[in-house]
Computed example of a mutant assay.
Amino acid sequence: MTLLTDTHTHLFTEEFDEDRDLAIIRARESGVYRLFMPNIDDTSVESLLSTCKTHPACYPMIGLHPTSIDADWEKRLAAVEAWLRGPETFYGIGEVGIDLYWDRTFRSEQMKAFDIQVQWALEFELPLSIHSRSAYPEVLEVLEPYRKEPALSGIFHCFSGSVEEAAPLLEYENFMLGINGTVTYKKSTLPEVLKHIPLERVVLETDSPYLAPVPHRGKRNESAYLVNVAEKLSDIYGTSLDEIAAQTTGNALKVFSKASRTF
């Protein structure tokens, strides 16, 4: 089988402290050979980099997650920016975006922080890994001034919306939709939605340790389970698992072009 690429995994977090090396081995044994790891906030960068330096299949991103935006957001964002402008190599700006699902207190601050990080992506010619939860209007509002920027690229992470919600995202031609384990859930509407979305605009992700696919739902997710997502897409698109792997990995490497030059 053609190699799979997990475009969004947090194997550097504490949930994997007991078996991180084994989790990465299991991923490889399942055919998942490339693991892109978005940062969370100013407290997680060292763990992220340590994991990626130990395991060459792991590619770090840098960013401040929207749920980490608080009263000290400017200080925290500055700390993340110092890492970006330092000697370390990063392959994307993420995980960034807007999350208004639980709390709208820092809505404007989230939008400001997201805008700043979009500017980083353009300055450093890196793709964005965009988190959006109950916030598509706000995300699109921030992105609108950059619509015609040819260098703007990335992934709308964890897409789970409707055909109508996908349409304005797909207008950003250099962006992909990230599909993960939610597509395997019994009540998910994604299988029907994806029938209207070209496979050429889809990448695979786990978002591990979260959102484990069926038959692992309810357990800690890990990159090895990406194959379950790929199998579901094989059913949806009516094509072979090899084709799903080849196309989605090709799509991922279009986004992460800096990483593709390391192979």
Rank of each mutant, 00 (worst) to 15 (best):
A113P: 04
G97E: 01
D42Q: 13
A246G: 03
E231Q: 11
E144H: 14
H216M: 13
V193Y: 02
T5C: 09
E125Y: 01
P191M: 06
H157R: 03
P38S: 12
A259C: 06
D70S: 15
S234D: 08
T51L: 14
D41Q: 12
A151I: 03
I244N: 13
L233F: 14
L64T: 00
I116A: 14
L64P: 00
F156S: 06
P209I: 00
E200A: 12
F90H: 11
F156I: 06
F256I: 03
R133W: 10
F90G: 11
W102G: 11
W120I: 06
K219L: 14
L204N: 01
T249K: 08
P56R: 02
S260I: 03
P66N: 14
W83V: 02
L3H: 07
W102M: 12
H8W: 05
I62M: 00
A113H: 07
L190I: 13
T67A: 04
L170P: 04
E74M: 03
E74L: 02
K53C: 05
Y146N: 06
S132N: 09
M61Q: 15
F124N: 10
Y146F: 09
E231N: 03
L233P: 06
E95K: 12
R85L: 13
P198D: 08
I69N: 04
G92W: 01
E123R: 07
L226V: 13
A246H: 13
E173M: 00
G86N: 12
P209V: 15
D70N: 13
L143I: 09
H157Q: 03
S162V: 02
I93Y: 00
L35I: 12
H55L: 06
L35G: 12
L49M: 15
P60W: 01
D99Q: 09
S129P: 05
N228I: 00
H196Q: 08
E165C: 05
A245Q: 07
W83S: 11
P215C: 06
P87F: 05
S208D: 08
K232A: 09
